[in-house]
């Protein structure tokens, strides 16, 4: 049972107000190929942090460090959170149905009745109750992403790591997923680190945006948004942050 929850186990016990992740002077390299440099960041409980950066700058690497599946080359990275990852590539098992894929994420400590109830709840939440016996290849791209979101939300993790979860979707589906993610997080509050290329997406969903530099990446600048997640794309603060990021990137 021990390895069942290995990645759920944080480095340190959770302590209400302390940051879930605190990274200090984190550097990482693949062999002689530096990817992250002197990275410093914190993730507060319940916070929605977006990380924006150029392709190949090390965003996925950063998430794997936060998940604990990779150790930083140097510097310190402390985790006080149990984490779950939404992968950049399709992370569903194609040989399992919607329900079986979501069931992977259920709390292994919970009893069978509680697990069944939670599974039904998750299927309702992502509106896939009618598709519980479908296989991933029988679902659309947006539906598959909803299954993945249900899988990470089903468990006891308090920090969700999302690696460009919507980048493969068309514009309309992406916008719909933004709204659905907002409402899912309203019913199941979690801290989120969202890696994205999409500046509008970051400004729409996040409380705080970190802009990473080119590889080897470090935090280049930081933008704050007023807390509260029901922002819309036309809101003044969203437009303002987008404009500031554009200015910073000289776009």
């Amino acid at each position: 049972m021990d390895d069942q929850i290995a990645t759920l186990t944080p480095d340190l016990p959770a302590a209400g107000h302390l940051p879930l992740i605190s990274a200090r002077g984190v550097c990482h390299a693949y062999g002689a190929f530096p990817v992250l440099r002197e990275l410093r960041l914190e993730v507060a409980p319940g916070e929605f942090l977006a990380v924006v950066g150029p392709s190949g700058c090390g965003k996925s690497t950063l998430l794997s460090l936060m998940a604990g599946t990779r150790q930083p080359g140097s510097g310190s990275l402390l985790r006080r959170a149990a984490t779950r990852m939404v992968y950049q590539q399709d992370g569903l098992f194609p040989w399992l149905t919607t329900a079986e894929n979501i069931a992977l994420g259920l709390d292994p400590q919970a009893g069978p009745a509680a697990r069944a109830r939670c599974l039904d709840e998750m299927l309702e939440l992502v509106r896939l109750a009618d598709f519980r016996h479908h296989y991933p290849h029988q679902l659309s791209g947006g539906m598959r992403r909803r299954v993945e979101l249900a899988r990470v939300l089903a468990g006891p993790a308090d920090l969700l790591l999302m690696d460009e979860p919507f980048s493969a979707l068309d514009y309309q589906t992406r916008r719909r997923m933004h709204r659905e993610l907002q409402s899912m997080l309203a019913s199941y509050p979690r801290a989120v680190v969202l890696v994205t290329h999409d500046i509008e997406e970051a400004a729409l969903l996040a409380d705080r945006i970190l802009l990473l530099s080119d590889r080897p990446a470090t935090v280049r600048s930081e933008f704050h948004l007023p807390a509260g997640r029901s922002r819309a794309i036309g809101d003044r603060e969203v437009l303002e942050v987008v404009a500031r990021i554009h200015a910073e990137l000289a776009l």
Binding site: D3, A6, T7, A67, T69, M85, Q89, F93, G105, P108
Partner: peptide, 15 residues
């Protein structure tokens, strides 16, 4: 076999 299956598997306790 795509690497992501093993990453997902490890995350959900399959080692």
């Amino acid at each position: 076999v795509p690497k992501v299956y093993f990453q997902v598997g490890a995350e959900y306790g399959y080692r």
